[in-house]
Design a protein around this nucleic acid. Structure first.
Length: 658
DNA sequence: CTTAGGG
DNA sequence: CCCTAAG
């Protein structure tokens, strides 16, 4: 992948070439004269940039790319790859007077998640490259800032070579320095004093750094602050590593590896034990990534942990890079990249790898690691395409992530962003049916439209919804501009950073389910209410039941109701009870067919559920006969007689089960 | 598709 | 109610 950046020149050319087809081509060229291109692409095997396709389930929340420049050529891009990618809160801000500036955040592999990635590049440099390959999951909160004095912000890649070692050194020093200065700051504060102590000796610094790093790692990364610190450190050493190699003495490498060790040892043993309870896995996850997780999916957890250990999301896909990775630690991060890239070409990159691996350093646990990862990968292979963590989990995760983001982290960032945000968001319909939400951002005098990349397009909606959608769309066809009126985004929606696209057109869209009243929900609710009201008379008429319209769900008063909620009416309950007595509990489809022919909206599952509830109610009420019926709480008061009837039926069924 | 259960 | 796993 990394090879995509071959040279800045190439990169620029690619962008210019593809700028025409970009989803939201920015056109600030007139006023500013800056050819700035932003494009969502992925880097294919041969290093070419391929526009992101629909198939890729892409989830990019809150992606900012602010590029302001007096530069001749400035390129910022965020490349993504594979399905299920999740990039939350990714900011790439580039302000530069540079000649050629490239901000570049390529990511790879499935289920990768990059949260809170900031890339700030402010530079007067001649050639500035900010490059964040996100294979390393642990660098979740990676934060890259470089400012004026930096000539090169090249990070984590030796694939881009047109830079001298001097660049690296200066850059590294700079970053370190920033780290020191901004030790406390969780984020922003972009431009820090550029010229203080740049001439430190590398060695001293690295050693110090690593010691600090080591100490930091020894502590449980529980608190957020230490979290940030840790991750920053990790990230930093990540990017330092490859280059320190050249100029640094072996002991440094050893040191840094030692620093890395605690992490490994903490998890290494556990990775073999797939039988760990989820709790433990979660713990491990936390130890590895420094954050909590609520995911309960074992497979997912294991895989994530493995990925974290390997610092590569390459884990599941193939096994080719994992082992080495584990051995050498992060040393061959670049290796991974190259491997991934040249997977297709099939040549052994390690052999041709320009950099010699520090094989002299300790390999005490080498075999262990090897086996662990082998086991793991084989396990993966056995499990085939392991059932995807189940959307539920994924969502759960992202949800918690969002919470995390909203809670503590990045307050400064928020400030900055909000200060920049008073922009105008607009919906522009571009190529085909796609609706792209963009917002115009102005920064340092140059403006550009930034696509509000987002997604939420997983799975199919439930049948009901689909029907509703169809209905709704047909309704809208009579009016003007169906799509737009359908998707006129409310402010809350925009704030929520959620864009539903192709809702009507694509059968795969599905509303996110959240607990709180999200915009999605509102939107849906609205649609639902419309349809419901339309459906209601129908069933009333056919059923001829006087008390049937009780369940009409009116959406109002901001009551966040369930998506499809229809209160069970008394008549329905009696119908159900009768049906059960006739056909027996469990013959829900039968009951539905006979006793609920008129109430089409009650599915057999509904009946089953209701019956379950009835049973619960009846038995709960039976001990003290008075309490149940007097229950002022909750929904309808089911007459005691019915409850008793239910109970008696239940007993009958249970005693005579088939 | 239908049931059974967990959430 | 919703979602899934099993028949």
């Amino acid at each position: 992948m990394g090879t995509a950046v071959g040279t800045v020149e190439d990169c620029r050319e690619m962008f210019e070439g593809s700028a025409q087809t970009s989803v939201t081509p920015s056109s600030p060229t007139n006023q500013i004269g800056n050819p700035v291109a932003y494009k969502l692409v992925r880097v294919s095997g041969d290093g070419r940039l391929v526009p992101a396709t629909d198939e890729e389930i892409l989830e990019v929340n809150e992606t900012d790319m602010l590029i302001a420049s007096d530069a001749c050529q400035t390129v910022g891009y965020l490349a993504t790859d594979e399905e299920n990618l999740e990039v939350n809160e990714t900011n790439i801000h580039i302000a530069s007077d540079a000649c050629q500036t490239v901000g570049y955040l390529p990511t790879d592999e499935e289920n990768l998640e990059v949260n809170e990635t900031d890339m700030h590049i402010a530079s007067d440099a001649c050639q500035t490259v900010g490059y964040l390959p996100a294979e390393g999951i642990p660098s979740r909160l990676s934060h890259i800032e470089s400012s004026e004095a930096i000539n090169s912000g090249l990070l984590q890649s030796d694939n881009v070579r047109p830079y001298t070692d001097q660049y690296y050194e200066e850059m590294l020093q700079k970053v370190e320095q920033e780290e020191r200065l901004g030790n406390v700051h969780g984020s922003q504060v972009p431009s820090t004093p550029p010229d203080a102590n740049i001439q430190f000796s590398n060695e001293e610094k690295f050693i110090k750094e690593d010691q600090a790093h080591y100490e930091a790692l020894l502590q449980e990364p529980i608190s957020f602050s230490s979290n940030v610190q840790n991750e920053c450190n990790m990230n930093q050493s990540d990017m330092i590593e490859p280059y320190s190699n050249a100029a640094a003495s072996p002991k440094e490498t050893a040191l840094s590896e030692a620093a890395q060790k605690p992490d490994f040892s903490r998890v290494r043993g556990e990775i073999c034990l797939d039988d760990l309870p989820i709790k433990a896995l979660q713990e491990t996850f936390r130890a590895t990534f420094g954050r909590e997780t609520t995911v309960k999916d074992k497979t997912w957890l294991k895989r994530r942990i493995a990925m974290g250990l390997v610092k590569s999301c390459d884990v599941p896909a193939t096994n080719l890079t994992i082992k080495d990775n584990k051995l050498i630690g992060k040393q061959e991060k670049s290796n991974v990249i190259t491997n991934v890239v040249s997977k297709d070409m099939g040549d052994d990159v390690r052999a041709t790898k320009p950099k010699d691996a520090p094989s002299s350093t300790d390999h005490v646990n080498a075999t262990d690691h090897y086996y662990a990862s082998e086991d793991y990968s084989s396990e993966q292979r056995d499990a085939k395409r392991v059932r995807k963590p189940t959307r539920r989990y994924i969502e759960e995760l992202s949800e918690t992530d969002e919470k995390q983001q909203n809670d503590k982290p990045m307050i400064p960032s928020k400030d900055q962003r909000s200060s920049e945000k008073p922009e105008v968001r607009s919906i522009s319909v571009s190529s085909g049916k796609r609706v792209a939400v963009t917002r115009t951002v102005s920064l340092a005098g140059s403006e550009m439209k930034v696509p509000y990349v987002s997604h939420v397009q997983r799975s199919r909606p439930r049948e009901n919804i689909m029907a509703l959608m169809d209905y709704h769309s047909s309704c809208l066809e009579d009016r003007a501009s169906p799509a737009e009126s359908n998707f006129s985004l409310t402010p809350s929606q925009l704030n929520n950073e959620v864009v539903k696209r192709d809702l009507v057109v694509e059968s795969t869209s599905r509303p996110v389910q959240r607990e709180f009243a999200t915009s999605d929900k509102n939107n849906e609710e609205h649609i639902l209410s419309v349809v419901d009201q339309d459906m209601e008379p129908e069933h009333i008429d056919s059923s001829g039941n006087s008390s049937d319209d009780m369940g009409l769900p009116i959406t109002q008063g901001g009551a966040l109701r369930r998506k499809h909620h229809r209160a069970w009416t008394l008549s329905e309950v009696t119908n159900l009870v009768e049906g059960v007595s006739k056909y027996g509990a469990g013959k829900w489809s039968e009951i539905k067919k006979h006793s609920f022919s008129s109430h089409s909206y009650r599915t057999s599952v509904d009946l089953k559920d209701k019956w379950r509830n009835l049973l619960k109610a009846s038995f709960a009420q039976s001990p003290s006969n008075s309490m149940g019926s007097l229950k002022k709480h909750g929904s309808m008061h089911i007459p005691v007689q019915i409850l008793s009837r239910v109970r008696e039926l239940a007993e009958k069924q249970s005693l005579v089960p088939r």
